[in-house]
Design a protein around this nucleic acid. Structure first.
Lengths: 190, 190
DNA sequence: GTTGATACCTAATACTGTTAGGTAAGGACG
DNA sequence: CGTCCTTACCTAACAGTATTAGGTATCAAC
């Protein structure tokens, strides 16, 4: 036999992420991950503390992956364009990888969270907002408004909440981002 | 012994909802619900199809309960005031009953969803938006914008995403709702 | 007073999560 | 060259959860 890929935390994260996208994050199970790695369940415990730690791995991978994409999306853009690109990166990622997107809402312990790509997300949003000339507090409000709007819209859309009404969510998405830009432009002049 | 409360779907929903608020919706287990009802697990299966059906029960209860509160909140109000009251009802409910709030994102099969209080939520939002004089499509966009913003903000806040930055989320919340009102007012004049 | 429905039970099975301890292979070192 | 340690996996056992099958007690109705 060819030497099979050795088990690592990184590999577990990848396999877990693929599984999450296929069956949903809430159904990511240690047993199934082990099965896909061609290994017995017990062997996982040399690499992860417990099942929760395994899920945290997927969470971290998703945070990282999405931070990279978001970073690429805002690079070289400013103002409304940067905002739309950033929001689009989130939405596209959620649709391409629903399981990983859900994984990001997994509660991490504070230490892990601090060391994760989580802060990068906040930084990226702040960077995208730079052009609006907000003061420190205003920027924080804007980060929260942006985060809430994007996350909420994407979550509801993914959950199928928009499936039974008429105009395409695409249009609502554009309108929402336009409105957000207008709002922030207004804030900057106060 | 006093006649113990007989098991009904309603009782299972209540017990499940309490459990959800205590330990989180994702940890609502048939075993624990049975334990709290003073009954063996197998006995649940006379009332629910499977564990997923049990969780759906909690979801339906939450949808209903929150629809009632939302309804009371918007009664007798209009415009910005109605909008803020409706949004506040969601936020307050999420903070008082995080487990039930999480339960509402449980995927229901289409038939159950249609018969649930879900549509009432959409109707309530539409009612709260009436004062803005939007056309049909505009109203749909507004419902989605409102839903996304409120749900996203509340979810992130509950997840602790706002815990490590300075101004109180309260202020961001006010700002966001004010911005939403201004946006919709602007939409109506187009 | 048998019948039937209702509401609960025990028992058995399968799967997930977790811990404890065993083994095989490969490099380091005498 | 043989032994020793480490690494990376294994088997075995056990607890908890989900599910199904089939049994029993109670009670109302005919």
């Amino acid at each position: 036999m060819t030497t099979r890929t050795p088990l690592t935390r990184a590999r577990l994260a990848t396999v877990g992420a693929e599984l999450a996208d296929e069956v949903g994050f809430e159904h990511v199970t240690a047993s199934e991950v082990a099965r896909r790695c061609g290994v017995r369940v017990a062997s996982l415990y040399s690499h992860v503390r417990d099942a929760d730690d395994l899920r945290a791995l997927v969470c971290l991978l998703a945070l990282d992956e999405l931070a990279d994409r978001a970073s690429a999306a805002v690079a070289g853009r400013a103002g409304a364009e940067a905002l739309a690109a950033l929001a689009g990166a989130y939405r596209d990622y959620a649709r391409a990888h629903p399981g990983r997107y859900a994984a990001m809402r997994h509660r991490l312990d504070p230490a892990t969270a601090a060391a994760s790509a989580g802060p990068r997300h906040a930084d990226l949003t702040r960077a995208a907002l730079r052009g609006y000339g907000l003061d420190a507090d205003g920027e924080t409000h804007a980060v929260r408004l942006f985060g809430g709007l994007v996350h909420g819209f994407v979550t509801l859309e993914l959950a199928g909440a928009f499936d039974h009404s008429d105009p395409s969510p695409e249009v609502s998405w554009e309108w929402s981002l336009t409105a957000l830009d207008a709002t922030l432009t207004g804030w900057s002049t106060r």
